[in-house]
C-alpha cells in the first residue's frame, strides 16, 4: 500500500514537495503561483461546477496521484489506450457482418442470439455483454442511438465517434430519423419502416446492413473491407466497390 511506504512523511514536507511538483509539471517559474490561484479559484467554485480549464494538466495530475497511491499502473493505462486505438474497433464488427453475408447459418445464429454468435469471434467484453443484431432489409431500416448518454457496442465497433455522443444526434435520431439519415446521405422511401433503437439499458445493438448488389462473389475478407462503421450504426449504406470486383 502506498500509505505504508510513505509512513513518516510529514504534512509540511508533503506541502513543500507538492508545490515543487506542480511547478515542475507546469514547466516554468511562476507555475506554482498559477497552481495556487487555480486552487483558490476551485475553492470558490461549488462541487460539480469545476470548469476543466488546463484539462491536460489536471488529467496528468490525477493520473500521477493515483499511480502514487498505487491504485493505477501506468502500463495498464497505456494498454487500454493502445487496445482501443489499434485493435478494438469497427473492423471487428465488419468481420461479423461479412460472415453473416457469406454464411446463411451464421446469419441465422447472429439474428437469433447476437451475443453467442459474436462470441464465436471473441468480440465480447465491456459494453458488448448483451448484443442484439438488427437486420436492414428493403422494408426495414434500423438506426441505433443512446439518447441518455453514449451507450455503444465497444467490442464490435470500438469507442463511439463524437457525432454519436453529440446533442444533435441524441436529440434528433428518435424524433426525425429520416432527416438525420438524409444528412448522412441516406434517402429512404416513405414505405420503408425506420426502426430506431434507443440503448437505454444493457443491450447493445449492431446493425446488419444490406449487402450491396453485385458483391455476391466476393470473399469474406473482401466484403469486410467494404463494411463501414456508420453502416453498422445505421446511418449509412454499404457501398459497392468502385470497380465491379465481383
Amino acid at each position: 500500500m502506498a500509505g505504508s511506504e510513505h509512513k513518516g512523511v510529514g504534512r509540511r514536507k508533503f506541502i513543500k514537495e507538492t508545490a515543487a511538483g506542480a511547478a515542475g509539471m507546469a514547466g516554468g517559474a511562476g507555475a506554482a503561483g498559477a497552481a495556487e490561484s487555480a486552487q483558490e479559484r476551485h475553492e470558490h467554485d461549488h462541487d460539480h461546477q469545476v470548469v476543466p480549464d488546463d484539462i491536460a494538466l489536471r488529467v496528468r495530475a490525477l493520473e500521477s496521484i493515483l499511480v502514487e497511491k498505487e491504485m493505477i499502473d501506468p502500463a495498464a493505462l497505456d494498454a487500454v489506450v493502445d487496445a482501443y486505438e489499434n485493435r478494438i474497433g469497427p473492423r471487428n464488427g465488419a468481420q461479423v457482418v461479412a460472415r453473416a453475408w457469406t454464411d446463411p447459418e451464421y446469419k441465422a445464429r447472429l439474428l437469433a442470439d447476437g451475443t453467442a454468435a459474436i462470441g464465436e469471434f471473441g468480440f465480447l467484453g465491456a459494453q458488448g455483454e448483451h448484443m442484439v443484431v438488427v437486420e436492414n432489409t428493403p422494408e426495414v431500416h434500423n438506426l441505433v442511438v443512446c439518447t441518455l448518454c453514449s451507450c455503444y457496442p465497444w467490442p464490435t465497433l470500438g469507442l463511439p465517434p463524437v457525432w454519436y455522443k453529440s446533442a444533435p444526434y441524441r436529440a434528433r435520431a428518435v424524433i426525425e430519423p429520416r432527416a438525420v439519415l438524409r444528412e448522412f446521405g441516406v434517402e429512404l422511401p416513405d414505405d420503408v419502416e425506420v426502426r430506431v433503437w434507443d440503448s437505454t439499458a444493457e443491450i447493445r445493438y449492431l446493425v446488419l446492413p444490406e449487402q450491396p448488389a453485385g458483391t455476391e462473389g466476393l470473399s469474406e475478407e473482401a466484403l469486410a473491407e467494404l463494411v463501414s462503421r456508420d453502416s453498422m450504426i445505421g446511418v449509412a449504406r454499404v457501398a459497392a466497390p468502385p470497380e465491379s470486383a465481383a
Partner: peptide, 24 residues
Amino acid sequence: LRANGVVSETELTRGVADPEAPVP
C-alpha cells in the same frame, strides 16, 4: 473520486498524492 475520499482538491491542484490520505 472526491465524493469517495480518494483524491482531494488540494492533491489535484498540486498534482501529488497526500501521503497521509488513506488509500481506499
